[in-house]
Design a protein around this nucleic acid. Structure first.
Lengths: 240, 240
DNA sequence: GGGTATTTGTTCGTATGTATG
DNA sequence: GCATACATACGAACAAATACC
């Protein structure tokens, strides 16, 4: 039997039975009988589906429909970027430019359209960012939260997830690759300017604020010591 | 050994040895010895990596580093959208809105910046589109080519691939799901307007042209008979 | 075209680890 | 602790595809 077929038929089974995320799949013996294949073939198909985030396998417990998150996309993008970088390509810069292009286009549409509730939440995040900057603490957590919150107003879950996926991929690779020379004060200022610009309703100013922010990151990227050829003990992904 | 570890170590092997796309990987017996695992475990790890597009397995020939394309992302997005639709969500519409948001933001930056060579190629594509419309032929091929060519001028390979991936995912699901009521003449006009707007250098006009184009698709989506619950013989993916 | 070696595909049997009751 | 159910892992064998002589 073609192994590709097995994957297709399992996917079809999920769709046909309208199984939602978290629903239990048939056990391996049941799938063996249903698909008419051996245990190993079924397992290989399930492994492939698990890699795509379509199913979730819990040891000694069972197989379930996966959360349908974009985690596999992060995985793939991160590896692609990492491998490209080690081969001398500017893949990390390209990933950053991709984020910049998307966010610049979106923020201009967002200017002046955010509800007050979102704005106050964003303000709280910037406050927290500057607070942590003063303490010399890391800003990545708050940065992620800020960007996620910013585009929540677009009211498109898929779009939000895609943006977060790109954020995750970028920071995963950056963390494993370069020594970031952060300038916390500057980062805080950039985000406050983004917030103010969005609040003011000035699309052009908002887009410029985003581009300045990304320009800052890009500069840090060039200055950074791009030389950490390989350190053997980076296990940088626990399956989500 | 944990199966997750095997995947990580194979990925690490690719990165460490700087293997480019298409380079041969060790054979299964070699990997068994190198990783200290059984053949089944190695195969399951390879299957998972294959699903992520990181390796490519050719029967009776060998295992190779994959093309690092975004094909797995298309796969995952398409399934997620398909499953969501069958569960009553408006996932297909969300995917369309994602494309619209990205293209609208990008095309405004593109207006007036495309080299003459690209513009003539785009014009040729629109001609071909109207030609095929007159013959009653399908427009999907030329539509894909148009959108791909349009954003080539951004000079970011990753961004282009992401856009094409979203295009592919959307059309894959649409094809399997709805009866498209195409209005070829209208589609042709919309694309000519996009081209003219981009050539004119008017950002606002270009963005409006894109939004009109997507608005047209959205309308067709709502009108379409959304009822093709399941036809058993759709094997809609050959691994790339 | 045929034969053989190499490589991946598929199957079976068996033992082990893990969570539930 | 014990029994059950399930996933995990290993080893061995044969089938199918491909390359090379």
């Amino acid at each position: 039997m073609a192994a590709r077929d097995l994957q297709e038929r399992i996917k079809k089974l999920i769709v046909d039975r309208r199984l939602p995320s978290g629903a239990p799949l048939p056990t391996e013996p049941e799938l063996m009988e249903f698909l008419g294949a051996s245990r190993n073939s079924v397992r290989e198909a399930l492994k492939a589906l698990q890699a795509m985030g379509i199913v979730e396998i819990r040891h000694g417990f069972g197989t379930y429909v996966g959360p349908m998150s974009l985690a596999p996309m992060v995985e793939g993008l991160a590896f692609r970027t990492l491998a490209g970088h080690h081969r001398g390509e500017d893949s990390l810069l390209q990933l950053l430019e991709l984020r910049e292009a998307m966010e610049a286009g979106l923020v201009s549409r967002l200017a002046g359209r955010l509800p007050e509730a979102d704005l106050t939440e964003l303000a709280a995040l910037v406050d927290r960012m500057e607070e942590r900057a003063a303490q010399g603490a890391g800003l990545t957590e708050t940065d992620r939260a800020f960007h996620a919150m910013l585009y929540r107003g677009l009211d498109n879950v898929l779009l939000s997830e895609v943006l977060e996926a790109f954020w995750d991929a970028f920071h995963r690779v950056q963390r494993d690759l370069v020594e970031v020379a952060e300038e916390p004060r500057v980062t805080g200022r950039r985000h406050r300017e983004i917030l103010d610009a969005v609040r003011s309703g000035d699309s052009i100013r908002a887009e410029k604020a985003i581009r300045d922010h990304f320009g800052n990151i890009r500069a840090r990227l060039s200055d950074a010591v791009m030389t950490r050829p390989q350190d053997p003990h980076t296990h940088h992904n626990e399956r989500v």
